[in-house]
Amino acid sequence: MEFSVVREDGRARFGILKGTHGVTETPCFMPVGTLGAVKGVTWEDIKRMGYHLVLSNVYHLYLRPGLEIIKEAGGIHKFTGWNELILTDSGGFQVFSLGKLMKLTEEGVFFKSHIDGSEHFFTPEFVVKFEEEIGVDIGMVLDECTPYPATYEYAEHSMERTVRWAERSINSRTTDKTALFGIVQGGVYDDLRLRCVEKLVKLPFDGYAIGGLSVGEPKEEMYRITKLVAPQLPKDKPRYLMGVGTPLDILEAVESGVDMFDCVMPTRNARNGTLFTSYGKVNIKKAKYKNDFTPLDPECDCYTCKNFTKAYLRHLYVTGNVNSVILNTIHNLHFYEKLMEKIRDSIKEEKFSEFKVDFLRKFKGDKSQISR
């Protein structure tokens, strides 16, 4: 993997990331295709919107369809039909979300499948092996996702384990075709976060992520930790804020120097009838849109906005028509990609601060928070 910062505006960075299967400009947002597909849209839709990097998940791909089927197909790109960049989350967040179905040890983590209750075991080495063998462009290491709230002692112990697992992950690599990212943990404790950064940057990772945020902590804490950690990460490596987030979250993080984002928000909200527009969120379920024959967003040029009205989109949703999911998802993902494109352009023109102020003036605010 190659990464270069082309332009800076304050701490905001415009860059280019090259991987085995393609190129993407940063800051970028990754649509979430947990099981090797983005819900509600086709790969052709994703490409048409301008995306070149998507996210999938080791935990889910491991359970279904499994390593052997993906390998037999010729790798994750051939199996899914997506021939551009793929990043896989290690599945650590999903495993640790299982609660009583999970048992943590120093060697790795035992867990029971949420599908059939079968027992499995993930180690840092296995996760790297899985990611390399299915041929992803970027793999995340297995980390311990510190919950919120957590005591200082718990967060410290958790962070130190994440570092030890990161060292094991690096030592288990067998190819440079799959880039490997380390993950900074440490809860909401500044000194733990900085100590984790100090240890991880000594390891030859291709990029670094900030994990353990968007897990229930106040927004102010998320912004503070991101602003603290991002500038401490190597300038010549991509910086990824995991599981974030709203348009407002993204703007704050870009301002702190973050390059990569993912979140289920645009696709999940689309399925629930909540749509992002230039003037804030629209809950298309509301009765006030029953006779509204205007476009969803007059400033949007997506297929949905160019061809359909709010009244029709509401009709599709309230009648349970599958086209509601499709059209809503097309719009929300298009909105996110256009937001990232405008952010990149504003950095290149050294006008990011002005763009942020103008965007926030129009966008009414989004206080919701959906974890990854």
Rank of each mutant, 00 (worst) to 15 (best):
L17K: 03
L17S: 08
K18I: 14
G19E: 03
G19K: 02
T20G: 00
G22H: 04
V23W: 01
T26D: 05
T26I: 02
C28M: 14
C28V: 15
M30E: 11
P31K: 06
G33K: 02
K39D: 10
V41K: 00
V41I: 15
T42D: 08
T42I: 07
E44M: 01
I46R: 02
I46H: 00
K47E: 15
R48C: 00
R48T: 11
M49K: 02
M49R: 06
Y51G: 08
Y51A: 10
L55C: 11
L55G: 07
L55F: 08
S56K: 00
S56C: 14
N57E: 10
N57P: 11
Y59P: 05
H60T: 08
H60C: 11
L61A: 04
L63E: 06
L63A: 02
L63K: 02
L63C: 03
G66P: 06
E68N: 14
E68C: 04
E68G: 04
G74C: 12
I76R: 03
H77Q: 14
K78V: 12
N83D: 15
N83L: 12
I86N: 02
L87Q: 06
T88L: 04
D89N: 10
D89S: 08
G91I: 05
Q94T: 08
V95W: 00
F96Q: 04
S97E: 10
G99F: 12
K100H: 14
K103C: 00
T105F: 10
E107N: 12
G108F: 06
F110S: 13
F110K: 13
S113I: 08
G117Q: 07
G117A: 10
E119M: 03
E119T: 09
H120I: 07
F121A: 04
F122T: 07
P124S: 08
P124K: 03
I134N: 07
V136F: 05
D137S: 10
D137T: 12
D137R: 03
